[in-house]
């Protein structure tokens, strides 16, 4: 049932993207949604009382948490960093052209 936590986080992000008028707040909504998915993936691999999946000399144990979702999450984070940098620079360029962050005023395209 812990998965509902990440779903609620996802909905918060979606609300942010759909309702907010400020470009940067929309970006924040996207980031929150990305975090919710990361949280979901990490929770998938969690085991009660599990060790971190690293071989350490002297420590014996087979109750590792699932390492694969962690590898997926770091990849997803790398991708989200790249897209975050791109979208932030887009926002800066848009601000330079329109002198505003309000999406209701950024309407040169009719569509």
């Amino acid at each position: 049932m812990i998965f509902f936590l990440s779903f609620i986080l996802f909905l918060i992000g979606l609300y942010c993207v759909l309702i907010k008028k400020n470009l940067l707040k929309i970006v924040m909504g996207i980031v929150i949604m990305e975090y919710s998915v990361s949280l979901f993936l990490i929770l998938l691999g969690y085991k009660k009382g599990g060790f971190p999946p690293i071989v350490t000399p002297g420590v014996e144990g087979t109750n590792f948490v699932d390492p694969l979702p962690q590898a997926l999450v770091i990849t997803a984070i790398v991708i989200s960093i790249a897209s975050l940098a791109l979208i932030i620079s887009l926002c800066m360029r848009i601000y330079q052209k329109y002198k505003t962050f309000d999406i209701t005023k950024i309407r040169k395209l009719k569509g």
Binding site: V78, I81, A82, A85, L86, I88, S89, M92, Q96
Partner: peptide, 27 residues
């Protein structure tokens, strides 16, 4: 790749704010 990339992105964003022009941000 990551060290160079992230610093380049950061510089591009910062220089863009200072100069207002010339920050060619791609990645």
């Amino acid at each position: 790749k990551v060290g160079g990339g992230i610093f380049a992105v950061f510089l591009a964003l910062v220089i863009f704010r200072v100069a207002g022009e010339g920050g060619e941000e791609q990645k």
